[in-house]
C-alpha cells in the first residue's frame, strides 16, 4: 500500500513538474532555447499568492488568478526589455541571458521577501483518508484538479483557437509561418504569456504542497528540464507525460535512496534518455 501512496505523491509532484515542463517546452518550441529563468518565474508566482492570499487574506482562487496574470505580464515585460533584442542572435545567447535573468529575479525576490521560508497557511492540514488507507490533503486535491483544468484549457487553446494553431505553426516551421503572414511577434508574446502563467501555476502548486522560499524554483528546474527532455523538448504533450514519469520515479526512489537525492533521480532518467533517445520518448521534434 505504501507504494500506492508514493505513486499518489508522485502524481502530485509530477503535476507540478508537468506544468513547469509544458511552459519550458512551449518557449523552446517557439524561441528555440532552454529558458533557465523558468524556475525563478515559478518562485515569483508562488510569492504573489503568498502576498495576496496569506498577507492580504483574499481568497485562494483570486490569489491564483492574480498570480497567473502578474507572472505572465512580468514574463512579457522581460521579453520586451531583454529577450526581444536577441531575436536575430544565436539562441544560445538567449540561454545565457536567461541564466542571468534567473539571478536577477532571485535577487529581487530576496530583496523583497527576504531569505526566509514561508508557508501559505500555518497549521497542519488533516489528510483525507480513502479506500485502502490512501491519504491525500485538501491542498493536494487542489493541485491535481488545478493541473487537470489548466492542461485541458491549454489543449483547447492549442487545438481550437487561431492563436493556438499559429503557435503550433511557428513551432513547426517559423520561417514558413512568417511567409504565410503569421504575425510571429504576436505569437511570441502569446507564448511568453502562457509560459509565464504556467510557471506561476507550477510555483503556486509547489508552494501549496511544500513551502515558499527564494530557491524553490531554481531547485526544481533540473527535474522540470528532465521532464521536458523526456517528453521531447518542444512538445508540450510529451512534457505532461514526462512530468508524471519523473515525479512518480522521484517519489518511488525514496524507498531505496536518501530523499535528498530526488533531483539525481530526475537527472539519471534524463541521462538515460539522452543516451538512448535524445528526441524524447514521446516523439518530440528532432534536435
Amino acid at each position: 500500500m505504501e507504494i500506492l501512496q508514493l505513486v499518489l505523491y508522485g502524481t502530485i509532484l509530477g503535476s507540478i513538474l508537468a506544468l513547469g515542463a509544458v511552459g519550458v517546452s512551449l518557449t523552446f518550441g517557439i524561441l528555440r532555447f532552454a529558458n533557465f529563468s523558468h524556475g525563478d518565474l515559478m518562485t515569483i508566482g508562488a510569492y504573489v499568492v503568498f502576498v495576496v492570499f496569506t498577507v492580504m487574506k483574499l481568497p485562494l482562487w483570486l490569489a491564483i488568478i492574480v498570480s497567473l496574470a502578474v507572472t505572465a505580464a512580468l514574463t512579457a515585460i522581460i521579453d520586451k526589455l531583454i529577450y526581444r533584442n536577441f531575436r536575430n542572435s544565436d539562441p544560445v545567447i538567449l540561454l545565457i541571458s536567461s541564466f542571468g535573468m534567473a539571478l536577477i529575479l532571485r535577487s529581487l525576490i530576496q530583496l523583497i521577501w527576504g531569505p526566509s521560508t514561508q508557508v501559505y497557511e500555518k497549521g497542519i492540514q488533516l489528510a483525507i483518508k480513502f479506500g485502502g488507507g490512501l491519504r491525500i490533503k485538501p491542498d493536494q486535491i487542489i493541485i491535481l484538479v488545478g493541473t487537470v483544468l489548466l492542461i485541458i484549457a491549454l489543449h483547447l487553446f492549442l487545438r481550437k483557437t487561431k492563436m493556438g494553431k499559429a503557435m503550433r505553426a511557428v513551432a513547426d516551421n517559423a520561417e514558413l509561418a512568417r511567409l504565410t503572414g503569421i504575425n510571429t511577434e504576436k505569437v511570441i508574446l502569446c507564448t511568453w504569456l502562457m509560459g509565464g502563467a504556467l510557471a506561476a501555476a507550477a510555483g503556486i502548486f509547489l508552494g501549496l504542497d511544500t513551502r515558499v522560499f527564494p530557491e524553490m524554483g531554481w531547485n526544481i528546474l533540473l527535474p522540470v528540464f528532465a521532464a521536458a527532455i523526456l517528453g521531447g523538448i518542444g512538445n508540450p504533450y510529451g512534457a505532461i507525460a514526462g512530468g508524471l514519469v519523473i515525479g512518480i520515479s522521484q517519489e518511488l526512489s525514496t524507498q531505496f535512496i536518501d530523499p535528498s537525492y530526488k533531483p539525481a533521480v530526475a537527472f539519471a532518467i534524463m541521462v538515460v534518455i539522452l543516451i538512448v533517445r535524445p528526441t524524447g520518448i514521446f516523439a518530440g521534434r528532432s534536435s
Binding site: 523552446f28 533540473l222 535528498s260
Partner: peptide
Amino acid sequence: TLNLRSDYLAIASIGIAEIIRL
C-alpha cells in the same frame, strides 16, 4: 551530450553541478 544541441549540454551540465553539490 556533445553530439546533441547545445541546450542539452547546458541542461546536463547544470544537472551535474546540482548533483555534485548534493
